[in-house]
C-alpha cells in the first residue's frame, strides 16, 4: 500500500516537472538567434518565401502564444511536425526508440556486470594495490571524453584487429521488426547469423557508453560496501560465525546496493544523454543521432520532443528505482 502511495505521489509530480522542463527548453530554443524558416527555405529563397514558412510553422507568433499553442498540442498528443522531414515528430522518435533502448540497456547491463563486482572487490581490498588499480581505472573511465574513447576503440578493434565494424547497427537493414531490438528480433526469428552480426555491431558503442557508467557504479558500490563493512550488523554476523562469503554477497551487497541503485537511475539518464555523442560517432540510428541532427538544423519541434521524451524516461526510470529501493530497504516503507 505504501508503495502504491509512493508511486502515485511520484506520478503526481510528473506533470509539473515536465512543464518546467518544457518551459526551460522551449525558451532556450526560441531565444537563440537561429532562423529555421530561413534554413529550410534555402539560400535561394526570397523573403516572401521565408515569411510564408515562418507563418506556416507559427514562428511569427509572440513567444507566449507559441508556447501555449505547443502545450495545447502536447495535451492532444501532438508533438508537432518536424521542420525538416515534414513528418510528425512522434513518428520520427518512435522509429529510433528501439535502437537507443537496445544500446542503453546493453550498456547498462554491461556497466552493472562490471561495476558491481569491481566495486565490491575494490572495497574488500581497501587501500591495497588492487584497490588502487581499480580506483585509477575508474578515474580514467570517468575522465575520458566519450568521442575520444569511441575513436580509439574504432581504430584498435575495427581498423587494427578488424574484429568489429566501424559503424552502423547492422550490415544492410536488419531483421524483420517485432520488438525493434535487432538482437531479440533475430532470436525470435531463429536467425543466428543476424543475431551474431547484431551483437558485433553492438560491441563498440556499448563498451564506449558502459565504461564511464561502470566507473560510476564501481565508486558507489565501493563506498556502499565500505560503509556496510563498518556497520554493527556485519560485526554481529562475523561474531556469529557466518561464512565471510555469505556476509559479503548476501548482507553487505544488499545493503550497499541500495545506494548504488539510486545511482543506476541517474546513470541511465546519463546514458541517454551520452547517446547523442556515441550514436553520432558510430552512426547508430537512434534518438541521440536524431537529437544531434535536430540541433544542427534548429529543428525546434524535434529538439523539444527529444528533450520531453528523455525527460519523461528519466522520470519514469527514477520512479521505478524508488519503488525498487522501497522493496529492497524495509526502512523506507
Amino acid at each position: 500500500m505504501r508503495i502504491l502511495v509512493l508511486a502515485l505521489r511520484r506520478i503526481a509530480w510528473m506533470p509539473p516537472t515536465l512543464l518546467g522542463l518544457i518551459a526551460i527548453v522551449f525558451t532556450i530554443s526560441r531565444i537563440i538567434p537561429a532562423d529555421p524558416a530561413r534554413v529550410i527555405a534555402g539560400e535561394n529563397a526570397s523573403p516572401a518565401q521565408v515569411e510564408a514558412l515562418r507563418q506556416k510553422f507559427g514562428l511569427d507568433l509572440p513567444l507566449m502564444q507559441q508556447f501555449m499553442r505547443y502545450l495545447r498540442d502536447i495535451v492532444n498528443g501532438d508533438l508537432g511536425i518536424s521542420l525538416y522531414s515534414q513528418r510528425p515528430v512522434v513518428e520520427d522518435l518512435l522509429g529510433r526508440l528501439a535502437a537507443t533502448f537496445e544500446l542503453a540497456i546493453a550498456a547498462m547491463c554491461l556497466a552493472i556486470m562490471i561495476g558491481v563486482p569491481l566495486g565490491v572487490v575494490s572495497a574488500l581490498h581497501r587501500n591495497r594495490w588492487l584497490d588502487q588499480v581499480i580506483r585509477l581505472a575508474t578515474m580514467a573511465g570517468l575522465a575520458m571524453a566519450a568521442f575520444w574513447l569511441a575513436i580509439l576503440l574504432q581504430l584498435f578493434f575495427s581498423m587494427t584487429l578488424g574484429v568489429t565494424p566501424v559503424q552502423g547497427r547492422i550490415d544492410g537493414w536488419g531483421p524483420d521488426q517485432i520488438t525493434g531490438f535487432y538482437t531479440i528480433d533475430a532470436l525470435i526469428n531463429g536467425d543466428g547469423e543476424t543475431f551474431g552480426k547484431a551483437l558485433r555491431y553492438l560491441i563498440l558503442p556499448t563498451a564506449t557508453l558502459a565504461i564511464p557508467a561502470a566507473a560510476t557504479i564501481v565508486r558507489f558500490t565501493r563506498a556502499g560496501v565500505l560503509n556496510a563493512l563498518s556497520s554493527n550488523f556485519v560485526f554481529y554476523q562475523t561474531a556469529m560465525g557466518l561464512p565471510r562469503r555469505t556476509i559479503i554477497w548476501k548482507y553487505i551487497l544488499r545493503s550497499a546496493f541500495i545506494g548504488t541503485l539510486t545511482q543506476i537511475g541517474l546513470v541511465f539518464g546519463n546514458l541517454l544523454a551520452g547517446a547523442v555523442v556515441i550514436e553520432t560517432v558510430f552512426s547508430w540510428p537512434g534518438l541521440g543521432l536524431f537529437a544531434y541532427n535536430s540541433i544542427l538544423q534548429s529543428d525546434y519541434n524535434a529538439i523539444m520532443a527529444f528533450t520531453l521524451f528523455t525527460g519523461s524516461v528519466f522520470i519514469v526510470v527514477n520512479l521505478l528505482i524508488d519503488i525498487a529501493q522501497t522493496l529492497l530497504d524495509p526502512r523506507t516503507r
Binding site: 565494424p165 559503424q167 552502423g168 550490415d171 553520432t280 560517432v281 552512426s283
Partner: peptide
C-alpha cells in the same frame, strides 16, 4: 545511401570497405 554525420567514421568506413 547512408547518412553518416561524423567525418572520421565515414573515412574509417571507406578504409575498411564498409
Amino acid at each position: 545511401f547512408r547518412g553518416v554525420l561524423e567525418t572520421a567514421t565515414r573515412v574509417l568506413g571507406v578504409m575498411k570497405g564498409e
